[in-house]
Nucleic acid binder design. Structure first.
Ligand SMILES: [Zn+2]
Ligand SMILES: [Zn+2]
Ligand SMILES: [Zn+2]
Ligand SMILES: [Zn+2]
Lengths: 137, 137
DNA sequence: CATGAACTTGACAATCATTCTCATCAATAA
DNA sequence: TTATTGATGAGAATGATTGTCAAGTTCATG
């Protein structure tokens, strides 16, 4: 059975207060910074569990790091992430879903899955495109 | 200036004979197996260079490994990869490109980029979905 | 063809994210 | 309360990728 622990609650809480993707290590630092004692391995384990339950989304940054986010939307969807500040917007692409299925079928593939992520520069960051601090980290 | 070396030619040749994605270490093993002397670091460097030149495509496997493939198509495109045998098919999704641009604009994002990969099970692998050896590695 | 500046190479060390180990702790059913 | 068993965490281990730097090559030039 799955037990309720102080650590798991802490990770969930941390995710609840964020609106962009964070790595396991960042979450760990956040919690430690708040004086919460938790091991790095536990953060990794908890995030992996939440992700497999579908409670949080996880994607890989271009440099291969896994990052997690608790999304407003549940179920399958994609993201549009600001390359500057990290802000993320939920996207659902019905068009993409059907396109993927069709293309796969045409090639004789079945059980198709897909990954799709968009990146760009958000309005706020575009305006202040100097070295200024964009949006809160 | 960029110099022509035995090692770089070897990596290019290896890629030319493959139709699925391979990691730097796999390429290295292949070459060594053929009696070609080359350092692992050189393989990494060469692949990274080829990728940045756009000569080869590289994507990340679900477990975070970078894999490379020399594609028939040049320019921006996506892939449909068989989860069983690794065979890859080039896909170009004009629909997806415009969709991505529109969605980003609606959210006030600019300079949009995207990553998109499809995975599935190819016709051959579906037929023989036992523990049999699917297509040649 | 001979030369040398600059680019390449490769053995090995160093990073770095993530996972594993396993003794200890703690949630919870009874 | 107490036994059972999942959960935790410090530190080791893993594994891909990158950095180091002395020694080897390439090739424009004379
Ligand atoms: Zn932004
Ligand atoms: Zn989708
Ligand atoms: Zn391709
Ligand atoms: Zn296949």
């Amino acid at each position: 059975m799955v037990r309720q622990t102080r650590q798991r609650a802490a990770v969930a809480d941390a995710l609840a207060g964020l609106d962009d993707f964070r790595s396991a290590q960042q979450i760990h630092d956040l919690l430690r910074g708040d004086g919460i004692e938790i091991g790095l391995a536990t953060v990794y384990r908890t995030l992996a569990m939440l992700a497999s339950e579908g409670v949080v989304d996880s994607i890989r940054t271009p440099d291969g790091e896994q990052v997690y986010r608790r999304c407003a939307v549940t179920g399958h969807h994609h993201h549009l992430v600001c390359r500057v500040c990290g802000r993320a917007v939920e996207i659902d692409g019905p068009g993409v879903e059907t396109w993927a299925g069709r293309v796969a079928a045409e090639q004789g593939f079945s059980d198709v899955e897909h990954t799709l992520e968009l990146t760009g520069v958000c309005a706020q960051c575009r305006g202040a495109d100097s070295g200024l601090s964009p949006a809160p980290k």
